[in-house]
């Protein structure tokens, strides 16, 4: 995998201090949200924990010795959620699904694959969709099960599939129509 190329603002020291003037802060948060989305897309990350990511290179640039504070990282996440680019999965644990594609977009991509590969009328487990060799070259390969469930629920609401109960996430099954 190619190395992620950080945007210019990541090398600019004041980017890592939450700005006091509202207009500037809005622009600053937008830059950070864009970075989170492109970073997750590059590395195919589907969910992030606030505390873990606050200590990762995503929010800390050791080259200029600057780091976004935990409070600022939380603000970035809540901005993502309020813009529809994220969803709290476990509010207590501060884990957030990151929607560099939104569930309805994943739904379209998955259904497209189902149609093209002749999987209509067949039953698949979540595990098969996520990890089988058939899906290896597709963007949703390795997708987070919670996100997969949300995406399939979109298809379910369109009458394109039915999701079956399972003991664990990977036991969940889906029948495509």
């Amino acid at each position: 995998m190619t190395v992620f190329r950080y945007p210019p603002f990541y090398s600019y020291p004041p980017s890592f201090t939450l700005q006091p003037v509202k207009a500037t802060r809005e622009k600053q948060l937008k830059l950070w949200c864009d970075l989170v989305l492109s970073y997750c897309k590059h590395y195919k990350i589907f969910k992030l924990s606030v505390t873990d990511s606050a200590n990762s290179s995503l929010f800390a640039n050791t080259a200029i010795d600057r780091k976004l504070s935990l409070a600022a990282v939380e603000e970035v996440f809540s901005r993502l959620v309020s813009m529809g680019y994220g969803e709290w999965l476990n509010k207590e644990a501060n884990v957030c699904l990151i929607y560099w594609r939104r569930p309805y977009e994943w739904a379209e991509i998955i259904y497209d694959w189902v149609e093209r590969s002749g999987k209509r009328k067949s039953i698949l487990t979540f595990y098969e969709i996520r990890f089988s060799e058939d899906t290896a070259e597709f963007e949703f390969h390795g997708i987070d099960p919670e996100l997969l469930l949300r995406s399939l629920q979109v298809l379910e609401s369109q009458g394109k599939c039915a999701v079956f109960e399972g003991k664990t996430n990977d036991d969940l099954g889906v029948k495509f129509r």
């Binding site: 090398s11 600019y12 020291p13 004041p14 890592f16 201090t17 700005q19 006091p20 500037t24 622009k27």
Partner: peptide, 23 residues
């Protein structure tokens, strides 16, 4: 919006992106 503060140094720095920005 011509200045940005930076509180991660020994004292508060005021940066001016009009003068330099690492584009």
């Amino acid at each position: 919006e011509l200045a940005w503060i930076d509180d991660q140094d020994l004292e508060r720095l005021y940066w001016f992106p009009s003068l330099y920005y690492p584009i």
